[in-house]
């Protein structure tokens, strides 16, 4: 059977409302009480994604590199604001740390993919750059917030150990090593488990999408393999870069633990 690309029409979308109708019916029958929310959600999905579609077709028509770079910066900023709001951490300069770490991670990982692995021409070709940048930013942000939170927990838990090591003359980096490692391990384990089980239980969303769009599964698989490798590097880079900035915030220039900041984390 040859590849066939099925173009989805607006009529098809309308037909898909049969799912919503079915859900609505079941909800009514069982008196689940979420009917109104379901309808709002249905409309929002339609509007948000349609809007996104128009936005993306506008973006993909752009041909200047500075438009793409500006868009990348905007994506990093919006993600950082979201991450900062989602988790209020008592880390001085936390927002700047998120922006900086995410920015560096995007430049390194995206640059490697575009220039060395896929060799995209021009390098800012939006059909490749924007979706991959989105994945890097999303995964990087998730991993960073998880790690930061875990690190602060570890530091609180190991306060005595950290001060004991400092008191013996250890550098700050050595005194916090245990906390750093625990935090990074905790954030990486799900990513590594992903490497172990991908393709066994379910097809990754991106790969399914490519196959639906008529791409040869072998090509889709190659893409997915690259994404998986990129995924783990993104997590480890974002974690290491952000923690390098974060742990310093908890110490003074005289290598003293800033206990007052750590205490604020108890709330």
């Amino acid at each position: 059977m040859s590849n066939q690309f099925y173009v989805v029409s607006w009529w098809d979308v309308l037909m898909a409302l049969v799912f919503v109708a079915l859900t609505y019916g079941i909800m009514r029958y069982w008196k689940i009480g979420l009917e109104k929310t379901l309808l709002v959600g249905t409309v929002r999905t339609f509007l948000q994604l349609t809007l996104m579609g128009y936005l993306l077709s506008y973006i993909f028509k752009q041909e200047s590199w500075y438009f793409m770079v500006g868009l990348l910066i905007l994506m990093v900023l919006v993600a950082s604001i979201e991450g900062y709001r989602r988790q209020k951490l008592p880390v001085p300069h936390y927002f700047l740390i998120l922006v900086g770490s995410l920015g560096i991670t995007v430049v390194l990982v995206l640059g490697t993919i575009l220039k060395f692995i896929l060799d995209v021409e021009p390098w800012y070709y939006p059909f490749v750059m924007i979706p991959i940048a989105g994945m890097i930013i999303g995964n990087g942000l998730n991993s960073m917030t998880l790690t930061a939170n875990r690190f602060i927990g570890e530091l609180k838990h190991r306060e005595g150990e950290v001060e004991m090591l400092l008191s013996l003359g250890a550098p700050v980096r050595t005194a916090v090593h245990g906390s750093l490692v625990s935090a990074i391990r905790a954030a990486l384990i799900p990513n590594i488990n992903n490497l172990m089980t991908v393709g066994l239980v379910q097809l990754p969303g991106m790969m399914s999408g490519q196959i639906l769009a008529g791409i040869d599964p072998l090509i889709a698989v190659r893409y997915q393999i690259i994404i998986m490798y990129m995924w783990i590097t993104t997590a480890v880079l974002a974690d290491v870069i952000s923690l390098t900035f974060i742990y310093r915030q908890f110490f003074t220039a005289r290598e003293q633990l800033r206990i007052n900041i750590l205490r604020r984390a108890e709330a």
Binding site: G160, E163, L166, S167, L168, G169, A170, P171, R254, E255
Partner: peptide
């Protein structure tokens, strides 16, 4: 500060 801490040991 590290040299200093080596010379001034602490037992908690």
């Amino acid at each position: 500060v590290r040299d200093l801490r080596q010379k001034v040991g602490m037992v908690f």
